[in-house]
Design a protein around this nucleic acid. Structure first.
Lengths: 246, 246
DNA sequence: GAATTAATGTGTTAATTTTACACATTAATT
DNA sequence: AATTAATGTGTAAAATTAACACATTAATTC
């Protein structure tokens, strides 16, 4: 390689000290977090949306988001937003993808990091009395503000994939649940019908269900047994599996 | 809910117009892209690293990264960086995760979006003559600058997972390859030994291999048949699978 | 060039996992 | 007491994965 070529190369590869000065310059970008919050109610998978008040998207619904503060970890930011909107902090929350096309936001360049959360609708009803917030049946989620439709689709597909690898669904159910409720949830998320016997077999073989020796109450049919999720056992088993962010 | 409570709520839930003004304010963060570039050479999985010239990390190795430009899509930025470092642009490139703890970078608040790429070392030897760049055996990758060790570990684990779901490995091999080379690659990535017969059976049943009716040349043993990867067929099949970012 | 060596190339069987499928049981309702 | 609609369970077939051994080829050695 010629000296000229090396010079050329040296120019094209930015050094870290160069980056350092750039960091201090105005070479910055607004960064936001958007949360796709799934719930499960009336046997339907729901997503929590907020009404957009931006002129361009007046009347449209959008995801729950906010700018990341300069002194705030990314994950912390996601938890803050979730907390602000739902009052909840002890939930499954996972980073999904970062969206950063130049013109995705009408207010200027905003890169957004998406997080996904699964919460129990029944336990947090009080937090969504606000008119601006609403649980939407995911079947009716279309035409969101900004690129939020794309973000939602991405998260939903990811949820469909991950629920088949990990028993995340428990986060959407009450502490005590019947196997029928569990199956309804899976059928709603995956948009498919499953064989009841094979479904039960599969979950029992996973060995994450604790038989609490209680029955459903006030159901208009033969009550089913109630179970709790064995988080402890799950956490132990997770460590033995291969993967990143269990 | 009382009027006061509603006021309180209105304050805590930031409106989009509020965000708009914030976007224009100084509430911005430096955003970078870091690329974890995997290669395969001498039957070893390698990762391309650059020598850090930041005082704090003098002598340490780091990932290839650069700040995202305000007028540049995130993906575009990743491709630009890859192109700058390797001269390559037509490769598999995938966003992995975004790292954003406050103190991850000594130069200030820098949130970084990680991308992962698989390239063919043989085809791009010329681009890494630069002393500052080096292919590291992944077994010897420890103690990188910044939080790059964590980022690398994350990408490597993800690669291990994804290679089992998708035949990404072809991107690391020359256009023509033998089944032994392919298996060596998988064994290097997954750090395991596999049964040769089952491995071959599996790949043939996938039906992504084109028999080009050529044999290995200049090997010190019985030459094996050479194959090409059927990208077209793979692309077609991808569409039928469930998932996000195939 | 014959013998040796070290790799390629192939098929079957067992084990495991997944799928398909039917009937007895229970408790609420009529 | 009879009816209804759900829960709860087991088995057989099918598909997938795992284990395993020997003949073949061409380069190398003698």
């Amino acid at each position: 390689m010629s000296a000229e070529a090396n010079m050329e190369k040296a120019k094209s590869i930015k050094t870290l000290t160069a980056i350092q000065s750039e960091v201090e310059s105005s070479n910055k970008i607004a960064l936001s977090v958007d949360c796709v919050i799934f719930g499960f109610d009336e046997n339907k998978l729901k997503v929590l949306l907020i009404r957009s008040d931006l002129k361009k998207y007046l009347g449209k619904w959008s995801l729950l988001g906010d700018l990341v503060r300069p002194d705030e970890d990314l994950d912390t930011s996601a938890y803050r937003i979730l907390k602000q909107r739902t009052g909840l902090n002890d939930v499954y929350l996972e980073q999904v993808h970062t969206f950063g096309t130049v013109n995705r936001h009408p207010a200027g360049r905003v890169v957004t990091v998406t997080y996904c959360s699964l919460i129990n609708v029944q336990h947090h009803k009080l937090n969504i009395l606000d008119n601006e917030l609403h649980w939407h049946d995911i079947k009716n989620v279309t035409d969101l503000a900004f690129d939020h439709q794309q973000i939602f689709d991405n998260c939903y597909q990811r949820l469909q994939k991950r629920i088949q690898e990990h028993p995340l669904g428990f986060n959407l159910l009450p502490k005590k649940f019947s196997l029928r409720e569990l199956q309804n949830l899976y059928e709603a998320i995956l948009d498919t019908k499953m064989d009841r016997r094979n479904f039960r077999k599969k979950f029992f073989s996973m060995d994450f269900l604790i038989d609490i020796d209680e029955m459903e109450q006030d159901v208009p049919h033969r009550p089913g047994k109630l179970y709790k999720f064995n988080y402890e056992k799950y956490e132990k088993k997770k460590k033995k599996w291969i993967g990143i962010d269990f």
